[in-house]
Design a binder for these strands. Structure first.
Length: 488
RNA sequence: GGUCUCUUGGCCGAGUGGCUAGGCAGUGGUCUGCAAAACCAUCUACGGCGGUUCGAAUCCGCCAGAGACCUCCA
């Protein structure tokens, strides 16, 4: 499997094209993904991003890389819009609810973990918090000042963008030119402290009413908007690491600033491959909490929402997301979810059928070629939708074998089982939702189906159909085949 | 206003110069006591106009529409 490593190509936002993936240290991958700000429940759009990068981490490991996956928890609020007078988002909510800021942080961190677990995401190896790395952030700011790329004003420290731009291209990630940025700058609070409107805060002086603040060489304050990711990625992955992921909406200014901070601190561009996931849309518009155009995972799983006509299992939602490429927007509609649910069930059916197939001396299809297509799909910038398409090729093949219209050899069945399990469960992270087949129900069902079978043998269709319809009403589907009846 | 991206069949969604994407839905058939499932076959495409090319959904230009970023946001 390790021979697969050289084939992976990833789309690097920095270069604007697909590049062959070659880690800085052979066999090892440093992966950093921007985590959530824990001042409210994560919505589905946030989840998509974390699920996308979960698949990235999973596939890298699947092809035998040792991955250190770091994803931060932003528990220091970032500045909000002008109306909030630069007030910290987390402390604002804390005062509104008469709670300690860390109480809020705790509540939503737990929620975040719970939701991602429902989506079957694998936790990152390190999940550092911003408040736990204030010292590292201060040290980073100091280094940037020492290198001449930042200055202090009234207890706040700002990054000197124009100075940086003299030697490094500010805007290289998001494809912006500094002249355009300057001409488009809006008047924002605190601008009078800056030498130039484009400069951004590395450290902010805290007002008296500010709840979250720490001592620093520049007085009491709190870290600026972008330093935490730079400080923590450097600490755990080094001054230069392989992959940095995040949503498209973080490209500018957040990731642009991270590049500027990292480069001005160490002299090295911090990230080799920048990967950006696209937005989840609802009614064709970006899912966003602030516009009310969002849905919480819980609401989706319970069906308690105004957008969807029914409830959907987390695994169905995850499968739905896998049918779209991570760099494309994905529109969330009830109709599309229903379709995905059916496709998901079909895939799961085939997977369990794999355990019962009869083998032949030869295979009527090139199984190695089929399995190879799974790898090829994922090697092409984690193209999960293509992988899913090939998985359905396999589904068709499996069903045909079951119908005695195709054959598979013992060796090929072994390989196919391993590959299907590997790509569906391990790579895509999709597991089978157990449907009522618990210990107590099972013998009861055996008895019921046995009775029905007797009725059918007597051509007592009335009784037979009554049983089937009754079970259907209870959500249990009975399927008859030549070998007997089964249920789920 | 600036920068960028997108527009694929009933729905979702891949593909980026010639070769079936796939899922769901539809239609016809096989199987079945009838269903369901499955299998086989089949239908509905590349926003509009022009250009490059032997050939374009795919490259170029213009037009229309949508979206993202420019401000915390995955």
């Amino acid at each position: 499997m390790s021979s697969r490593k050289g084939n992976l190509h990833v789309y690097n936002t920095l270069s604007g094209k697909k590049e062959i993936f070659e880690p800085i240290n052979e066999g090892l991958v440093g992966l950093y993904v921007c985590g959530p700000t824990v001042y409210s429940n994560v919505h589905l759009g946030n989840c998509r991003s974390f699920i996308s990068f979960d698949v990235v981490a999973r596939y890298l490991r699947f092809i035998d890389y040792k991955v250190r996956y770091v994803r931060n928890i932003t528990d220091v609020g970032h500045l909000v819009d002008d109306a909030d007078q630069g007030e910290d988002k987390i402390s604002k909510k804390a005062r509104l609810e008469q709670l300690e800021p860390m109480e809020i942080v705790q509540e939503y961190t737990i929620d975040f973990h719970k939701v991602l677990e429902q989506f079957n995401n694998i936790p990152p190896n390190i999940e550092p918090t911003a408040t736990g790395h204030i010292i590292e952030q201060i040290e980073l700011v100091q280094r940037i000042i020492e290198n001449g790329f930042a200055y202090e004003t009234n207890g706040s420290v700002y990054f000197d963008v124009e100075k940086y731009n003299e030697t490094h291209p500010y805007g290289e990630l998001s494809g912006r030119k500094i002249e355009d940025l300057i001409s488009n700058t809006r008047e924002l609070d605190g601008q009078s402290e800056k030498h130039a409107p484009l400069d951004f805060a590395l450290w902010k002086n805290a007002s008296d009413e500010h709840l979250m603040k720490w001592p620093s060489p520049w007085g009491l304050g709190f870290p600026g908007w972008h330093v935490e990711c730079s400080a923590m990625s450097t600490k755990y992955l080094g001054e230069q690491f392989d992959i940095h992921g995040g949503g498209m909406d973080l490209k500018f200014p957040h990731h642009e600033c991270e590049i500027a901070q990292g480069t001005s601190a160490s002299g090295l561009s911090p990230v080799k491959y920048w990967l950006h996931g696209n937005m989840l849309t609802l009614d064709g518009k970006k899912m966003s909490k602030s516009t009310g155009n969002s849905i919480l995972p819980e609401e989706l799983f319970s069906g308690d929402n105004t957008f969807m006509e029914k409830a959907f299992d987390p695994m169905v939602v995850r499968f739905f997301m896998m049918q779209a490429h991570y760099r494309s927007t994905l529109d969330f509609t009830s109709e599309a979810l229903v379709a995905a649910e059916k496709g998901y069930n079909k895939l799961m059916e085939a997977l369990s059928l794999l355990e019962k197939l009869e083998v032949s001396s030869e295979s009527s299809l090139d199984v190695n070629e089929l399995i190879n297509s799974f790898y090829t799909a994922m090697d092409d910038d984690f193209n999960a939708p293509i992988l899913v398409a090939h998985l359905f090729d396999a589904v068709k093949f499996i069903n045909s074998i079951n119908d005695k219209k195709a054959t598979i050899s013992k060796e090929d069945l072994f390989s196919l089982k391993a590959a299907m399990f590997g790509f569906v469960n391990i790579v895509l992270g999709i597991k089978n939702v157990e449907s009522g087949s618990d210990n107590k129900l099972s013998p009861v069902m055996d008895l019921v189906l046995d009775l029905r079978q007797e009725a059918r043998a007597n051509k007592d269709w009335g009784t037979s159909d009554k049983i089937r319809n009754g079970l259907a009403a209870a959500g249990i589907v009975v399927k008859d085949s030549k070998e007997g009846s089964s249920w789920k």
